Amino acid sequence: MEEEVDSDGQKRYRTAVSYDEHMSSHFHSWKEDFTEKPERFTETIKRCKKYGLLERCKYVPSRLATEEEMMVYHTKELIDILEKSQFLPLEEMRKLSRLYDYLYFHKDIYNNARLALGCTIDLVEQVVTGKVLNGFAIVRPPGHHAMSNEFNGYCYLNNVATAAKLAIKNHGLKRILILDWDVHHGQGIQYCFYDNPNVLYISIHKYLDGKEWPYLRESDYDHTGEAAGVGFNVNIPLNVVSIYLI
């Protein structure tokens, strides 16, 4: 993450970072002790600042993703639901949340989801156009469970899938690797590119023979893609959890 200097004496960074402090308002509205809380964002920022990492990177300013960008993967109907959710009374938010699996709305979620997507898109753009070698988007809410027409698992807009689709559309990329290393399988990304040979999706996730959320048969190793995308979807399901006592 060290900076270099070009022939004009200007700083040239190898690594970019994008985030927005407003994302610290991402939380579960009616369960303060729930795992989805501001600290999942603020502690990451705090840790990076402690080691002086942020100032060594090129900062990519945050912005709200446009409706056109959101619709690269998501339906207009889903986006409309997300937009309207910010104005609902708390009880109506709770009712809406129950329509989805592990999904909780609050008044800032529409803008936070758009910020997370906007940051991710612009960070990928920096890398694809050669302005930096790599980058880190520190964003909440996450996105890999979100599907084209359904919110899911704390995810509202699929940040990575959308950014990858835009990179293909705008730059004609034909070889993209998405490595998803998480406790849970990112089915939203898998569904997005399941028949696409331009994207190799690799997911390493806890599976426990289907007993781990999201409890999907297609999260197993033998789901490898379809049509032209056969072989471009690689699931590495972890079926055994070992606990070592020292």
Score class of each variant (00 low, 15 high):
Met1Cys: 11
Glu2Tyr: 14
Glu3Gln: 14
Glu3Met: 15
Glu3Cys: 15
Glu3Val: 13
Glu4Gly: 15
Asp6Trp: 06
Ser7Gln: 13
Asp8Cys: 12
Gly9Thr: 07
Lys11Pro: 14
Arg12Cys: 14
Arg12Leu: 15
Arg12Lys: 15
Tyr13Ser: 10
Tyr13Ile: 12
Tyr13Lys: 10
Tyr13Gln: 10
Arg14His: 13
Arg14Leu: 12
Thr15Gly: 08
Val17Ile: 11
Tyr19Thr: 01
Glu21Met: 13
His22Ala: 14
Phe27Pro: 00
His28Met: 15
Glu32His: 11
Glu36Trp: 08
Thr42His: 02
Glu43Thr: 12
Glu43Cys: 11
Glu43Gly: 08
Glu43Arg: 14
Glu43Asp: 14
Thr44Leu: 14
Thr44Cys: 14
Cys48Lys: 00
Lys49Val: 06
Lys50Glu: 15
Lys50Val: 09
Leu53Gly: 05
Leu54Lys: 01
Cys57Leu: 02
Lys58Glu: 09
Arg63Ala: 08
Arg63Asp: 04
Ala65Ile: 04
Thr66Ala: 05
Glu67Thr: 13
Glu67Gln: 10
Met70Gly: 14
Met71Asp: 08
Val72Arg: 02
Val72Pro: 01
Glu83Pro: 01
Glu83His: 08
Phe87Leu: 10
Pro89Arg: 06
Pro89Asn: 08
Arg94Asp: 09
Ser97Ile: 04
Tyr100Gly: 03
Tyr102Gln: 11
Ile109Met: 03
Asn112Phe: 04
Leu115Phe: 12
Leu117Val: 06
Gly118Tyr: 02
Thr120Arg: 01
Gln126Lys: 09
Val127Asp: 00
Val128Gly: 05
Gly130His: 02
Val132Cys: 00
Ile138Met: 09
Ile138Gln: 03
Ile138Thr: 04
Arg140Ala: 01
Arg140Ser: 01
Arg140Phe: 03
Pro141Ser: 07
Gly143Lys: 03
His144Trp: 00
His145Asn: 00
Ala146Gly: 05
Met147His: 10
Ser148Asn: 13
Ser148Phe: 09
Phe151Ile: 03
Asn152Trp: 13
Asn152Ile: 06
Tyr154Lys: 04
Leu157Val: 07
Asn158Cys: 04
Thr162Ile: 09
Thr162Ser: 02
Ala163Gln: 01
Ala163Met: 04
Ala164Val: 12
Asn170Arg: 13
Lys174Gln: 14
Ile176Leu: 08
Ile178Asn: 00
Leu179Asp: 05
Leu179Ser: 07
Trp181Ala: 12
His184Glu: 05
His185Trp: 06
Gly186Leu: 03
Gln187Val: 11
Ile189Pro: 00
Gln190Leu: 07
Tyr191Cys: 11
Tyr191Val: 10
Phe193His: 06
Leu200Asn: 04
Ser203Pro: 06
Lys206Asp: 12
Lys206Ala: 10
Lys206His: 13
Leu208Asn: 14
Asp209Cys: 12
Asp209Val: 09
Gly210Ala: 09
Glu212Ser: 11
Pro214Gly: 06
Leu216Val: 04
Tyr221Met: 13
Thr224Gly: 05
Gly225Cys: 01
Glu226Tyr: 12
Ala228Leu: 13
Ala228Ile: 08
Gly229Met: 03
Val234Cys: 08
Asn235Phe: 02
Ile236Ala: 08
Asn239Val: 05
Val240His: 12
Ser242Tyr: 12
Tyr244Met: 15
Ile246Leu: 15
Ile246Asp: 15
